[in-house]
């Protein structure tokens, strides 16, 4: 049952707060991007590259990326522990839940690393 139970010290309040804070960060990032897109008349490769060359934009993007990953992890974990149950899936539910969580974790880690690579690669 360990995968279904909470990690030591994990609290519902913290999860709940993190979900809200990360949502705000991601929303702010989206708004910022929209503002930039609308205010920049001609979105050229150079302009785009220039935007992401600044340190603050790199930090903001990394922050948004991290927020997305954390947000998604908590969300996917919650969805998994709701729907992947012995009640509907039988005795393999725990194994399935483990594989599902492993899958989610790998995908999120991949995205995170890929994002870092894009930002600071080359």
């Amino acid at each position: 049952m360990t995968i279904r139970m909470t990690r030591p010290g994990r609290s519902g309040i913290l999860d709940w707060l993190i979900q809200r804070v990360t949502a705000v960060i991601v929303a702010a990032f989206i708004v910022a991007m929209l503002v930039w897109l609308l205010s920049t008349g001609d979105v050229t490769y150079a302009a785009w590259k220039g935007l992401f060359a600044t340190a603050w934009m790199q930090s903001f993007t990394l922050l948004a990326l991290l927020a997305t990953c954390v947000h998604a992890w908590i969300g996917m974990w919650t969805v998994g522990t709701d729907y992947i149950q012995t009640g509907n899936l039988g005795k393999y539910a725990e194994t399935l839940l483990f594989l599902y969580q492993l899958g989610c974790a790998l995908v999120l880690i991949f995205y995170l690393l890929w994002g870092i690579n894009i930002l600071w690669g080359n």
Partner: peptide
């Protein structure tokens, strides 16, 4: 007793 991710937060 209610702060875990299930009791209230579901």
């Amino acid at each position: 007793a209610l702060e875990d991710p299930f009791s209230v937060f579901r």
